[in-house]
């Protein structure tokens, strides 16, 4: 069944199933905003602030959040398209970009990414075959073998190789282009695929086709996914664990059942109840929270959600809540920490 990827050709599993495939510790990325007369740095966008996460082998970790929460920055940090200001990454036991560790190039062989914009992520001047063969050739695969791999890849993503190999991106529909993008991400036989809003721009009927395909590919190739999306339904459908981000911070992290069944953070609750109801008899009467997410330049002190939180108290402005384990999930909220000083928190 697994003709495309003979296991021995892929990077070997080293630490066994219990060792996380990817571990990120204290990742931070601030973008300077140039301003003033001399182009000095006057402000910083705090896109990602001290974020730690781990991705287990074979799981799908969903990342949800609104625009500006830093989820795309996380994706680019994990594949090192952006260099983190701070923080470490460990890929299956090997530190990344450190002495005694693996290089960024090796990381990129094992971790690949699919982008949201299916058109912008394909070079308009190259045929589909040229695009797909680029990475294998750059890694030294001979042309004839690269061509063979292109055929396999296209077949894998449900595109007839003979029909599509010599086509150009503009001759394909959005769904077909996104299939090509997924094929490209698989070209180096990675272990972890980061899907950054990979189905968000597709029409619903096409989105369902691509989601089915993603599920099949994961089983077939033994992949691990990091699935980033603003669509809570799609994340729930695909993910094993879910991470909720707000303004560059993790606010809640847990199993999909816990996050959707028993959300603990007020923001997660708001996000979930902001979904349209799909039932004309049970329409939403009131918006769960008011206002827009604040600008990630100068985020609020303490808890970053406090400006929109209906339960905000003094302590929320003073102290930044840490991600703390409750029974089923980890939550960054003073209300969930005993003795935090919040009136709704349990006594210490």
């Amino acid at each position: 069944m697994d003709a495309l990827v003979p296991r021995q050709d892929r990077a070997k599993d080293r630490g066994g199933p219990a060792q996380p495939l990817l571990l990120a510790e204290g990742l931070r990325k601030h973008f300077p905003v140039m301003g003033g007369l001399l182009g000095r740095t006057t402000k910083v966008v705090r896109a990602v602030d001290d974020l730690s996460l781990s991705v287990a082998k074979g799981e799908t970790l969903g990342v949800v959040g609104e625009s500006g929460c830093g989820k795309s920055t996380v994706a680019r940090l994990l594949i090192r398209l952006l260099k983190p200001d701070k923080g470490t990454m460990v890929l299956d036991g090997d530190p990344v970009d450190e002495p005694h560790g693996i290089t960024v190039a090796e990381l990129r062989r094992q971790v690949q990414m699919v982008f949201q914009d299916s058109y912008a992520s394909l070079n308009p001047r190259l045929t589909i075959a040229e695009t797909l063969a680029f990475a294998p050739k750059a890694h030294g695969l001979p042309a004839s073998e690269a061509r063979e791999r292109v055929r396999d890849l296209l077949a894998k993503v449900g595109l007839e190789p003979d029909t599509y190999m010599e086509r150009y991106p503009h001759e394909l529909s959005g769904g077909q282009r996104q299939r090509v993008n997924i094929a490209r991400a698989l070209a180096l036989r990675p272990r972890l695929v980061i899907l950054d809003e990979a189905v968000s721009a597709l029409d619903k009927s096409v989105e369902a086709q691509v989601l089915n395909m993603l599920v099949d590919l994961k089983d077939e190739l033994g992949l691990t996914y990091l699935f980033i999306s603003h669509d809570l339904n799609v994340v729930q459908y695909l993910s094993d664990r879910v991470l909720v981000m707000y303004l560059g911070k993790i606010v809640e992290l847990g199993s999909v059942e816990a996050i959707y069944g028993n959300p603990q953070h007020p923001y997660t609750r708001a996000l979930l109840s902001a979904r349209p109801s799909m039932d004309p008899r049970k329409r939403t009467k009131e918006a769960p929270i008011q206002g827009d997410p604040p600008n990630p330049i100068d985020p609020p002190s303490g808890c970053r959600f406090r400006t929109r939180c209906p339960f905000a108290e003094d302590v929320c402005a003073r102290l930044e809540p840490q991600l703390a384990d409750t029974r089923a999930q980890a939550v960054a909220c003073h209300m969930r920490v005993a003795g935090s000083g919040h009136s709704k928190a349990a006594a210490p």
Binding site: M113, F115, T131, F134, R184, L188
Partner: peptide
């Protein structure tokens, strides 16, 4: 700034290869 250049970088190709294949033609 296009994603396909990022995708090429993410595939681990060297800068000269990326310029030759992805940038020059455009």
């Amino acid at each position: 700034g296009f994603d396909f250049v990022d995708a090429a970088r993410a595939s681990g190709a060297g800068a000269l290869t990326i310029v030759r294949v992805h940038v020059l033609g455009n």
